[in-house]
Amino acid sequence: MSALTLASAPEDATALEAAEAHHARLAGELAGRVALLLTATGRDHVAAERLHAGLVAFCDRELLPHTAAKEAVLYPVARRLPDTRLLIEGLVGEDRCLAALVEALRDSGDLALAAAEARALQVLFEEHLAKENGLVLPLLAAAPDVPLPALLADVQERTAPSGAPTVAAPRTKAEDMTDDPTNQDGCGGCGCGARETGDPELDVRTVPHAVRHATVFRTLDTLPVDAALVLVASHDPLPLLAQLEERRPGVFATEYLERGPESWRLRFTHRAALGVVEVTS
């Protein structure tokens, strides 16, 4: 069922679709960070520690403020709708579980345990968003007396950094190096070629299909200039490559490292300057 079918007004449909897109972005970045942490754990202790710290920072910066804002703004309104009390109480309980998982992740001194907690956080967060996308948001959009665009604007304002615009400014290279899930070497992705452990890998075969492309895009968005990421997929990701070129034209050079039949491996390198995308064998 489409958002237009569910919404009571066109502006509600637009707001609902924007909220779902934002949820996909959050879930995609979380899935990408967790996948990289799982890959690094047991293989590169230094890289895993950086990925662990970056994941906690992402949760503090985006995931937890987002859940808190929705609990403060959306849930009280949704609770007043018919037959929603138990649903909202369940979601509030899940918010508490998400916060507890982030705290456990923050305090974990064992990287293997941290990876397990990160995976549990990802699974619960995706299930949580599925309930909001499939139940809470459509109910709010269908209610004629609920100003859904205004409510979602309030959520966005509450989650934006104090004094900052609601649309985030582009991150600098220095900021990327500080909180970058792919920054695994001591050179900080400077392009000197001194990667002792090789490029990080993102295996999207373990990422739910609904957020797979969002996961790749959000992970590539954090990649510093001259750094590289290896993508592992179960098929040739031609549609993803086309979407990436449409979204970020000329930004990434792409090289095939393996072409099936069991898996496809591609290296994405963030170019220093825009140019024509190259896809090499």
Rank of each mutant, 00 (worst) to 15 (best):
C190G: 15
R43E: 12
A53M: 03
A69P: 03
H22K: 09
R205A: 09
R212V: 05
D145K: 07
D83W: 00
E20R: 11
D83A: 12
L64Y: 05
L238E: 12
L55I: 06
G42R: 05
A57F: 00
R96C: 07
N183S: 11
L240Y: 10
R195V: 05
L129F: 10
L86M: 02
S234C: 03
Q184A: 13
A78Y: 06
A48R: 07
L63T: 13
A174G: 06
A13R: 12
L257H: 11
D60T: 00
Q156L: 14
L105Q: 06
A141I: 09
A9Q: 11
P165F: 02
V207I: 15
P144V: 03
A114P: 06
R171Y: 04
R61A: 14
P261H: 07
P200K: 05
K131G: 01
R248H: 11
S281K: 07
L6D: 08
P239T: 06
L81I: 06
L231Q: 10
L6F: 04
L257T: 07
A53E: 13
R119Q: 12
P165M: 06
H52D: 07
L30P: 03
V46F: 00
I88H: 11
D110H: 11
A40I: 04
P144E: 08
A143N: 05
V225G: 01
G28W: 00
T84F: 01
T67Y: 06
P165N: 10
D236T: 04
D199R: 13
V73M: 02
T5A: 15
G186C: 00
Y75N: 07
V77P: 08
L101P: 03
A57T: 06
E20K: 07
P208D: 06
H66T: 06
S263A: 15
L238P: 00
T197F: 07
S263W: 01
D83R: 11
L26T: 12
L64V: 15
L241C: 08
T67H: 15
E126G: 09
L140I: 11
E201I: 14
V230S: 05
E196C: 15
T269E: 14
D107T: 14
D226H: 14
A120Q: 14
F252T: 08
V211M: 10
L238S: 09
T215K: 07
A153M: 01
V279I: 15
A9Y: 01
L229F: 13
E11Y: 01
K131Q: 14
T178P: 00
N133G: 09
V211Y: 10
A272W: 10
A104H: 13
T39V: 04
L257N: 05
F268R: 07
A112Q: 15
H209R: 11
N133H: 11
L244D: 04
P144G: 05
R80G: 05
V34L: 12
V204N: 13
A57R: 09
L266K: 08
T67D: 08
Q184D: 12
T182K: 00
G42K: 02
L4K: 09
A194R: 13
T215M: 12
E175V: 07
Y75C: 08
S162N: 10
F58R: 01
F58N: 01
V155A: 10
L137S: 04
L101Q: 14
T280D: 03
A31F: 03
L140K: 04
D203S: 07
E132P: 11
D180V: 01
A169D: 12
P10I: 09
D199V: 14
L257M: 12
L148G: 05
V73F: 02
A160I: 04
C187T: 11
P149F: 01
A228S: 15
A72D: 08
